[in-house]
Design a protein around this nucleic acid. Structure first.
Lengths: 195, 195, 195, 195
DNA sequence: TATGAATGAGGGTTCATTCAT
DNA sequence: TATGAATGAACCCTCATTCAT
């Protein structure tokens, strides 16, 4: 264990922070080098190019998200419980790595087409995971017969927005926020038999 | 009336589109001038600086939103109806001016501090409008006793995200999407007396 | 008439001189800008890129050569007279524009493939002009039955090499040198009937 | 004997090839290291500096040429035979070591003044060998009374150009090409008594 | 011998902006 | 209004070389 951080990991963390705060194009390699107390040119021992660095951050972001959410989707839990857990887990992940997530969510346009395609593929894969739960719930009659596509976007907007306002010093923990979200959405979706 | 568009309005529209698609820093004055078929230097007859242009776009975005939403908040409608209308109206506005809205939502960090403060003030004002409705609803017992701050962020994330995926050619109109959103949220909030 | 030289022409001349003396890669845009007393960045008002500049110089070189030599080849003169004139004209051209010619002869490898191909095409066209004269002379029995390809290379090496040693202050003019060359080659080629 | 090639010799051969194909300045130490499958830094166990390496290649080139040509010049053969052999030998040498020869012929300008002087001295020494034969031939009345300087340059241009087009897979061997050259020049020079 | 992180300078290029015309 | 040449700073990146390991 231990908190050994390699120079390279440090670079990724610093870059994610700067890209997230100032934006990719507004962040210079100089800015990154300054934070690491090395020279501009020395960065290229660790990365191939600025855009390659961006890609790596975005890939890390989406992969982390997926690793945490996929087991939920593939479990045997009922759809409502799956959805609640997915919402909580997504919220927690965003709150845990807000810099990586902000970069992943905002800088797609800064990638050149080939790399952009690859990230887009991840993104679609993730979207499908979410929709699958919703579709399953509707099919089984657990959820109201909603427009799965629109609701999935509603849900993703809600949780992705978290990085914009979440603070670890705030009154609610990420898990608590996730629970509020889950309650809200489930209340809105459950097909109650209020005869 | 007629569709006269002054050169200046054209400039704003073109700039909004480019800033939204490529990002503020990735868009050059050259890019803008090219679309207008004039030369780089000639832009400065219409605007004071690139950053001034950005500010103007963002102000237009938030002001448009506010003009449309404020009357709803200040009306005498019951809280649930106010909320439904706000959600619909916000959704429609985003879908109507996606470029301006995307710029408003993403490029705050590209403004220098003084201008940033001014936009932030607008933003907070808008947030308060939303929270006021929620607080009112909870107070009157129309809504469940939810965390107003968190729910307002949930709601804003949901509607702001629309610019990311909305297409005028999609199966649902902006109004229909707004209605789906409103239903979802209201279902989630209403304090039903399901004795 | 008059000796008005536009800024752009000046740039080409200066670049040819520097590329020829120091080599393309060893010449920086700074070097060129210094000679013109402008800033590095200002060069890009006149050229598209350093490599584009190189291409333009090379194209100017080969086109100049071709314009001067083609009329000779296409004339109705007998082959030996054509060859003598070509050699003289080529020599004079090289001596008149040694910088452009040196760049043309040496920096092919500094061009990226697409541009390289275009220059190579010119080069082959020129080679064909030379070979056509030789072949014609051999066919008509004016020249000995030599290997046209090898002799054409011999001839081109001889005249191209001129830029390496020619000086306008030397004892012989470019035309005189061309005449020496022509005599040498013709003596070597003519099919004398020394029965 | 055997074909043991030390690491160092391998380095020289690889460097000559790269310098010849891409040019000295366009070739990075990285390029060389890559071909040898070692790291950039490790090159400095074998050489002192990039420029030192270039110098060594050029010296090898000119020395090889001189070693092969000097015995011919210093022999007791008649001038025309000497000249024929020199042309053949020079041609063969260029065709045998085209990379070294190309570097020697093109990269003089890439050397710093002190090293450049040394190579220039070799070059002049070689030029004198060639001129000595010509002068001798003219003096003895074997050759026509030509301008020795110009003819020597003609001859050198012809043979040096070989590296530009020679291919071991071509229809003629280097020796055959040398013979064509020698015939051409001698025919052009011999003082025939064509009464 | 070989490694690989680090240096420090310089490379070509782009940019927002100015200003005389 | 519009032009276009020029500015000056900053940009990303590459390079030859060093040196502790």
């Amino acid at each position: 264990m231990g908190n050994e951080t390699t120079r390279r990991e440090e670079l990724l963390i610093v870059a994610a922070r700067l890209f997230s705060r100032k934006g990719y194009h507004a962040t210079s390699m100089q800015d990154i080098a300054d934070e690491l107390n090395i020279l501009r040119g020395s960065l290229y021992h660790y990365i191939e190019s600025k855009e390659g660095l961006l890609y790596e951050l975005m890939e890390l972001g989406i992969q982390t998200l997926m690793e945490r959410v996929r087991p939920i989707v593939e479990s045997d839990l009922p759809p409502d419980e799956k959805l609640a857990r997915l919402i909580r887990q997504h919220t927690i992940t965003i709150a845990s790595y807000p810099d990586f997530m902000a970069v992943f969510l905002h800088e797609l346009k800064s990638l050149s087409p080939p790399r952009r395609e690859r990230i887009l593929a991840y993104r679609q894969e993730y979207d499908h995971l979410v929709r699958r739960i919703l579709a399953e719930g509707v099919e089984r009659g657990v959820f109201r017969p909603v427009d799965v596509r629109v609701v999935s976007f509603a849900l993703l907007g809600m949780v992705n927005w978290v990085y914009q306002w979440y603070s670890p010093d705030g009154p609610l923990s990420a898990e608590e926020i996730g629970t509020v979200f889950a309650n809200l959405v489930l209340q809105g979706l459950l097909d109650r038999d209020d005869t």
